[in-house]
């Protein structure tokens, strides 16, 4: 009786606390609703289980503790009870079957395809994300940060260029590995305006911790304006020279932006994953800079590790782009 009363009180408090605590970051997608509800149901189920077991253990060690004079006493020779065994096998089994069924329903809901989905390609590489918005007329729009219109269903198509990454926006509650050679994805519908972090959740090398970006959920009209803006400079550069500075800060879709890892005053970047280029490239000639980009492991700045910088810039940059980048760096580094 003592146990039942305490158990009920403790369970009630536990569930209340479990539901009151705001476990997750703010939710920003329609898919978050069913997932958060499933989480709450897990709390409903698990708190009483925890409380029951804990109370019985506490009661046993308190009530049946050895008292002075009982040192030679043996407890009753009870070896087991088949009916009890059946009960405590069957009850958890029933609970688990019900939970499984409910999880399946939630899964079907959140994976359902929506009408009029917008497709966004997510590309992971060491150590930055690139988001591509395919356009009916020509080249896709590329961005280092994720822009999404509110209430527009989105299907992300996720891939990786080098190692395995994991595309995670905690506010959307979904996560998927970006695996080289495989295209993966998931669907969400953003439903709250705001700015949310994008995180890489799978160890991808030394810059894993800094592989972050920002999601901005904006009004559809603002999104259209943003796309139009992004298109404009892309078209302008088609007939003109390659812009070394833009390449440095934004990359080219295949090659990660230099600025994601390096500090350069002229480009206003400040990451410390790789060496500060204002220091290490000051007064260096073009041949040296080119070699450092194409073969980064040839000479390593003291205090940094071999193998962090992707060794494939020779392939991912065209010769024009490489030349523009080398010229740009020669002009501005350390100046």
């Amino acid at each position: 009786m003592w146990m039942v009363i305490h158990g009920l009180i403790a369970s009630a408090i536990g569930i209340a606390v479990g539901l009151a605590i705001n476990w997750f970051p703010e939710s920003a997608s329609t898919q978050a609703g069913p997932i958060d509800r499933l989480y709450d149901i897990l709390i409903w189920v698990s708190v009483p289980v925890f409380v029951t077991v804990t109370i019985i253990v506490l009661f046993s060690v308190q009530n049946f503790r050895m008292r002075p004079g009982e040192e030679q006493l043996d407890g009753p020779p009870i070896h087991g009870n088949t009916r009890l065994e059946v009960i405590w096998t069957a009850i958890p089994a029933i609970i688990l079957v019900v939970l499984c069924g409910y999880a399946w329903v939630v899964l079907r809901d959140i994976e359902e395809a929506q009408a009029g989905e917008m497709r966004v390609n997510v590309v992971g590489q060491q150590f930055a994300w690139t988001f591509e918005y395919p356009q009916a007329d020509g080249e896709p729009v590329r961005s280092k940060h994720l822009y999404l219109p509110k209430d527009q269903p989105v299907r992300f198509s996720v891939r990786a260029i080098d190692v395995i990454h994991d595309f995670w926006v905690p506010a959307f509650r979904m996560k998927i590995d970006a695996v080289p050679g495989i295209e993966t994805g998931y669907r969400i519908t953003p439903n709250r305006l705001g700015t949310y972090p994008v995180v890489c959740a799978e160890l991808c090398g030394l810059g894993h911790a800094v592989m972050r970006a920002t999601t901005r959920v904006v009004e559809p009209a603002a999104f259209e304006r943003w796309i139009a803006q992004q298109k404009a400079p892309a078209q302008a550069s088609e007939d003109g020279e390659v812009d070394g500075k833009a390449l440095f800060t934004d990359g080219n879709g295949a090659a990660t932006a230099c600025g994601a890892c390096h500090t350069l005053a002229d480009a206003a970047t400040s990451s410390a994953t790789g060496p500060d280029l204002d220091e290490v490239l000051a007064d260096k000639d073009a041949a040296y800079i080119e070699r450092e980009i194409v073969d980064p492991n040839a000479e390593i700045t003291p205090g940094f590790q071999t193998g962090i910088m992707p060794p494939n810039y020779g392939d991912t940059l065209s010769s024009d782009e490489l030349e523009a980048l080398v010229t740009y760096l020669g002009e501005v580094a350390g100046k």
Partner: peptide
């Protein structure tokens, strides 16, 4: 543990 003589 139940109904035993639990020695701490």
């Amino acid at each position: 543990l139940w109904r035993g003589t639990v020695e701490f």
